[in-house]
Design a protein around this nucleic acid. Structure first.
Lengths: 220, 220
DNA sequence: CAACAATATTTCCTTTTGGAAACTTATGAC
DNA sequence: GTCATAAGTTTCCAAAAGGAAATATTGTTG
């Protein structure tokens, strides 16, 4: 289906998308492989402690965990409870993500995930039917998903939807009414879109008899 | 046994978008800017499960943890072990930092920008006809735009397009062939989407007779 | 609202963790 | 080398987590 003619174009128009769109051009080649390595908690913890120049006894004092417990954790003899991990991280002044930091998330170049039509991960709720896209990639900057907005009424909701980040919404099919905390409701038809701060209360309903289909992208 | 903070529960349960949506966390190591003081792990987990539309039973299947255990974790009756948390995060496809993300409440500026169908800011090039959306908002986390893809062959380009950030693409009309540096070309039809690291060279052409229409969202 | 099904919580018991102390292994001084 | 001391590991037991099944709660249908 694809006769990829790898022919390298000579010199034509360099199609550079609108300037506003592409802030900076960084050409960096990465490995191209994005592996989620298994986390060796104990090992990692030991490294951290050593780096800090602490003995088990000192670490014990700082964290409030017993020497023996620390030893066992480091040697992977036990799996610490969340509670213990909190003591660890606060006592040693490290933050949790650091503990779990997958060594090289940095050069995450070369990731790609295709989601075919209606083959996303669906998550039905009473008012929406969400279809998550690109679910194979984690740690994304954006979260795209489609939603089937059921033809219902305002009363189906118990309050504003509100969450961190910004949201972009595009109507793919149908017609919706978009409510938001600081603005009047607006009707959005197929092709219309709205970009808003998701901390602002918002919600939407299908404005017509049929269900509406929208695309949603969120970034925090 | 149950100091149970069930109080605020009811009126707050709203249909929020899927959880992967809220990365809101410093992914990379680095400083300790993170205040991870009040983590309500159970509460947070419950939210996540709900937004994924899962029952305890289903979550149990996916994670391999017993229903009862999940329940107890969600209700903060036990402090899960690291092992349990790993099962949780891998089973539910969430990543750990996310679990600890402090839902930081920042000033909700309440910005909003509606772009009506075909009323964005157009930006024609030889290969595309871009239509920028939500142009009235500056300093956005995401840059959404539609593009009419005119390019028909590889030669229309002079090389890979490459820029900072991540990109999400959804085919609105027509059919395109998506080329990328580290993968084989793929054909994408209406409704298909792809998410990729924009540092990876990429480009696309219309695969059919007509021009294709796509939605593009970029975040850096 | 009874009856039923689906979901969530609690109980009861087994397995595992966490801690004090005993034990073992470095590291040094003499 | 012996002795002394610090660092790390293992033992043993109380306390807490994890799982199966019972119980409670919620939601649906006639």
């Amino acid at each position: 289906m694809n006769d990829a003619n790898q022919a390298e174009g000579d010199s034509m128009k360099i199609t550079t998308p609108p300037q506003d769109v592409y802030p900076s051009m960084t050409v960096s080649h990465g490995d191209g492989e994005n592996k989620i390595a298994p986390i060796k908690l104990g090992q990692r913890l030991k490294e951290i402690r050593k780096t800090l120049g602490l003995t088990l006894e000192e670490a014990s004092q700082k964290t409030g965990l017993a020497r023996s417990t620390l030893s066992k954790i480091e040697n992977e003899q036990i799996s610490p409870t969340f509670q213990a991990m909190q003591k660890l991280t606060s006592g040693l002044q490290i933050d949790i993500p650091q503990l779990f930091a997958v060594p090289k998330q940095l050069s995450a170049t070369g990731r790609r995930d295709i989601t075919r039509f209606e083959e996303g991960k669906t998550h039905p709720t009473s008012t929406y039917e969400h279809e998550l896209l690109a679910v194979q990639l984690t740690n994304k900057k954006m979260m795209p998903f489609k939603s089937l907005v059921r033809a219902r009424s305002f009363e189906d909701y118990s309050g504003w939807i509100r969450h961190d980040g910004e949201e972009f919404l595009l109507v793919l099919e149908g017609e919706i009414t978009f409510f938001s905390e600081f603005y009047e409701p607006v009707n959005l038809n197929k092709g219309d879109s709205v970009y808003y701060d998701a901390n602002m209360g918002h919600m939407l309903i299908s404005a017509s008899e049929q269900d509406a289909l929208i695309l949603w992208v969120t970034a925090s």
